[in-house]
């Protein structure tokens, strides 16, 4: 159980409650409190968090730890989806980290709880290829509708590409890091 002197008392009770009910693990880094929550519990977690007067889903983003373990039940899943909550009435913040495996990454949607998650989830689908089950309108949002690949993945080419000519087309094509999925 997490007990620290300097942590805000209200936040501490909330974190302990979430730890107990969701089996989440809490950690602290540079004064920011975060919880690691399993993917299947994220809807329940968001409902809990909203019930604890975190009215605002400030940010929602993801980090790609490619080429780290991409197996479905791997120890170190490829993606972390990050939910950043703000409580306006109590002036608190809380971060949830949700590990997502690299093969067929998907998460249940929370857009019915926090309505602004709608576009945020579309952005994550567009940029990382993480599917959100039950999302009402999962289309690309920033890239054109016919774009291939998911640009913010780490295996998506960045900057320049080696020019392909007729004599070396196939050779380069073989080792070209296409974004898969």
């Amino acid at each position: 159980m997490l007990v620290r002197e300097f942590m805000d008392k209200k936040l501490q009770t909330i974190i302990q409650k979430l730890e107990k009910e969701l089996g989440a693990t809490a950690s602290e880094q540079r004064g920011e409190e975060s919880l690691i929550v399993a993917a299947e519990k994220i809807v329940a977690a968001c409902e809990q968090v909203q019930g604890q007067s975190f009215e605002l889903l400030s940010a929602m983003t993801a980090v790609d730890y490619w080429p780290q373990a991409s197996s479905p039940q791997g120890e170190n899943p490829r993606f972390h989806v990050i939910y950043q909550f703000t409580s306006v009435s109590k002036n608190l913040s809380l971060t949830l980290h949700v590990p997502v495996p690299g093969i067929n990454p998907s998460l249940p949607t929370v857009s019915h709880i926090y309505r602004n998650a709608n576009w945020r989830e579309r952005e994550l689908w567009d940029m990382f290829g993480i599917k959100f089950e039950g999302h009402p309108d999962l289309r690309r949002i920033l890239m054109p509708a016919d774009w291939e690949g998911h640009p913010l993945r780490k295996d998506y080419p960045l900057g320049y590409e080696e020019p392909q000519f007729t004599f070396n087309f196939e050779e380069i094509d073989l080792r070209k890091p296409y974004a898969k999925g």
Binding site: E55, L56, L57, S58, V88, Y114, R115, N116
Partner: peptide
């Protein structure tokens, strides 16, 4: 206000 917060307005 409640709608605005839920929609992430700031």
């Amino acid at each position: 206000g409640a709608d605005a917060l839920n929609l992430g307005m700031t």
